[in-house]
Nucleic acid binder design. Structure first.
Lengths: 203, 203, 203, 203
DNA sequence: TATGAATGAGGCTTCATTCAT
DNA sequence: GATGAATGAAGCCTCATTCAT
């Protein structure tokens, strides 16, 4: 008898993702983005996912819980993607630029996920716990701004404000960049958008 | 074929024209921002507005139409407020700054209306006609950006992009500024936020 | 001062038919035939008639009463039309044939009224009083059948049955005859239909 | 987002397949004939059928669809009953008589179904598709009439007309025959009614 | 694990009717 | 007589959720 160290599962996404569970999540994401949380009955999700009504509620005791799960998953994925190639950067400035590019690229390549998160963020009903928890992934960005200020690269102002302005500008930039299919054009938009942001930030 | 016998209403309701219509709109705005479109039954709106269910549907054939009406009204009000004291400004730069201040002030003073518009903007179901119609109020802003470019005050880039970045930054700024109650602090945030934006825009 | 004998008004249709009252009745007939009793809101009737909601209820305290009035009016008109040129006929046979023709002609020329009466006859909800009262107009037909039997022209059978068979055959004939626009064709159908009926009745 | 907590149902409902569906149909038929389509709320149907509101709509997405289903079912049943013992008859005449008897007997024994069909036939709102589909069951009757004409037993006239007159006469006969409870009397009425029809048809 | 029939509270909307003007 | 805003009971239908199999 072989003993195995039970693998430490990251708190939330533990339930050994069965195939059905994944199908449900994928389908739900697509439908929620197209039709909104309230325009999407759970019955439709299960039908499109090819499972029974009961199956959905086996994995997610509540519609709300399904939404939350999706939110947490996407948020953490986004945070992760945002850090790609982060360690190799040296200055705060280059880190921030790297992060901005990552964010924009991710947003363009995952429009459904982005739309989902926006919808979630602006829906007055959803569980606020998930909301706050989601934000926590981005605290490192705050730190980064503070670091930039100490380095003298970023203006010495309330880091919260800078963080917030930066985040909202990025979301505008993604929206704009998603509007073109042409890669050259897109490249240009991204470059200039990031310039806008950096000019706003720099000392 | 008989339905009901309405109770005699107390004669204290000497209402002029569409007082009721206004009460409904006001109540709806408050409830929608608190509880969301879908968390707010029409029955609750009419109850809180102090009118009968039928009255709501007398003025707005559909819940959706009520929402749309609210949207159009707020959007046009916002556009109007944004232009306050606009004509006295000479340069594109001062105009844009004036406009920014107006936007932030309006946002801070009308949090419910702002929240409503955000919710509306990010709800995948709502009538797109109202959406587009709403945007039309802000075309003058695009023109303003173009004017600034011609003047040489704003950098020569895709005005759409600049407009979009500016708008999203402003919304972030409002959110941040709404966080403080202290007027001095708020003043400072606004000033620095507008600096951020202007630095992003300027040539 | 001239005294005038107040004209004796026939019990029901007394209310000095105002123009509005007539417009309402006419409109209601058209709408009921097209859309059914329940598919026709009183609000639609008054709108199409060009009067206010309240006006309809001024003349007809109830929707049901409006329907009944229409029914009584049409039924009595139909009965009257059925007797056209009746007195000049001598034998029961010729009387019956005359009546049959009248019925068919009226039915073809007043399809809306016919449809209304059928709908009324087969609606389980409508006031039965109007139902029975309507039938009273046709008692003379029963008498006619009995007369024919005494004359030896009609088979000696339960007159109720004969009356009933005759009536239902006539309604079938009208339906069939209404199907053609061509007058010659129609003439032929009517002739043969009446033959069918007379062959069924005769001794 | 939570709705309700269903009570534990007593385990006495070991239902096979769509027992509920049948209960709904049966109950609906009874109620519709008593109170009319519009006098019968779906809520009353489900209550009387002993099922939940949702159950009705699980089986019939619409009230109209429930009515249609009922119509189609009854119509096809009636058509089937009308052909009982049909094959053993040799001549068109005997076939028609057989069919007439079958029709009358079915009508007398199924007054609710008959009333339902009449109500359906004269309701201006109902789906015309079901209407036409229902009629298709009776095309063989048309053929029968044509056969009789070729045999020389039926007079040589538009078969559509004859079919139509026959059908309407039959419906009158059923109504009349249903009026008596006395079997001898009833027998007599049927016989004489069929004579009426045959005399109308024969060459 | 999976299924899907069953539940029933609750949502949106309709419409006959009233009544103050 | 005429108007039409106001009423509110009641109708149809949706949908998150349960549970026996």
């Amino acid at each position: 008898m072989t003993r195995q160290k039970p693998v430490k599962r990251p708190a939330d996404e533990g339930k050994m993702s069965s195939e059905n569970r994944e199908k449900i999540l994928t389908t739900a994401l697509a439908l929620f983005t197209e039709r909104g949380f309230f325009g999407t009955p759970t019955s439709l999700i299960s039908k499109e996912a090819g499972v029974a009504t009961g199956t959905l509620f086996f994995y997610f005791p509540t519609k709300e819980e399904l939404i939350d799960t999706l939110y947490r998953r996407i948020k953490s994925e986004a945070a992760q993607e945002m850090c790609r190639g982060f360690d190799t950067e040296k200055t705060a400035q280059s880190k921030i630029r790297c992060l901005g590019i990552n964010a924009v690229v991710w947003g363009i390549q995952n429009p459904a996920k982005l739309k989902f998160m926006e919808q979630f963020a602006y829906s007055p009903f959803v569980s606020t716990t998930a909301h706050e928890e989601g934000m926590s992934h981005f605290h490192f960005l705050r730190n980064l701004v503070e670091e930039g200020i100490r380095e003298g690269a970023i203006r010495d102002t309330d880091p919260s404000l800078l963080f917030c302005m930066m985040a909202s500008s990025l979301s505008g930039l993604i929206a704009q960049a998603s509007g073109t299919a042409d890669p050259a054009e897109r490249e240009k938009i991204i470059k200039e958008g990031l310039d806008f942001i950096w000019n706003g930030l720099k000392a």
